[in-house]
């Protein structure tokens, strides 16, 4: 087989390697798999917070860990934040102050359901939104402070079984992050 090499101008700026506060973890991808996953179509209930509208029905169905895609829909109120550099130096970045999008439309979002350090349900959600003043924005949603509008919003759920997503302190980044963890099948 003939191999050819080509030379070209660098098509993009050189990627940056950031220095995190903690010790480098040689494991760069933490992952687990399951033989199959159950899919659920869920409707977010109007008037509820995004957090409650996601966690409630899934918990009632025994689902504690899942990846979800939130289809478009209106929210009576929507609060989000972005993640600028952390000037304190504790981490590379830190969540900024809550930003009010008002009566906003979620264009689409992805949310991960897992368990917080204390075992309580945790939702990590990023979304593209159209704010009340018509500007399209994106960021990290504060799901407890987003209220579903008058029409139910469909969510496609991939339920994760055989392992759980658990928030734990990540020494390298010095942040609390969701990580997959094996669970006992019984008890």
């Amino acid at each position: 087989m003939t191999k050819t090499s080509t030379y070209s101008d660098t098509p993009f700026p050189r990627p940056r390697t950031l220095v995190h506060p903690g010790r480098f973890n040689p494991v760069r991808i933490q992952s687990l798999d399951a033989q199959q996953a159950r899919h659920i179509r869920l409707l977010l209930e109007p008037g509820k917070s995004l957090f409650d509208a996601l966690v409630g029905p899934l918990s009632e169905n025994g689902i504690a860990s899942a990846s979800t895609t939130i289809l478009g829909g209106s929210f009576d109120t929507l609060t989000y934040c972005v993640a600028p550099p952390d000037l304190s130096g504790k981490s590379v970045i830190a969540y900024g102050k809550p930003l009010q999008a008002g009566r906003a439309f979620m264009i689409f979002g992805n949310a991960t359901l897992g368990k917080a350090v204390d075992g309580a349900p945790l939702v990590h959600c990023h979304a593209a939104i159209r704010t009340e003043n018509g500007t399209v924005k994106g960021g990290h949603l504060i799901t407890e402070r987003c209220v579903v509008g008058e029409a139910p919003i469909p969510v496609l759920v991939t339920c994760l079984a055989g392992f759980e997503l658990r928030q734990a302190h990540d020494p390298e980044t010095n942040m609390l992050l969701l990580q997959p963890r094996k669970v006992a099948l019984h008890g």
Binding site: P15, L18, I29, Q30, S31, D33, A34, Q36, A37, T158
Partner: peptide, 19 residues
């Protein structure tokens, strides 16, 4: 449909090649 995997990719890894 086959199996399903959940992964957490660590800092300074490329997104595309990480997947």
């Amino acid at each position: 449909m086959g199996r399903v995997a959940y992964g957490r990719i660590a800092p300074n890894e490329d997104l595309v090649q990480g997947l």
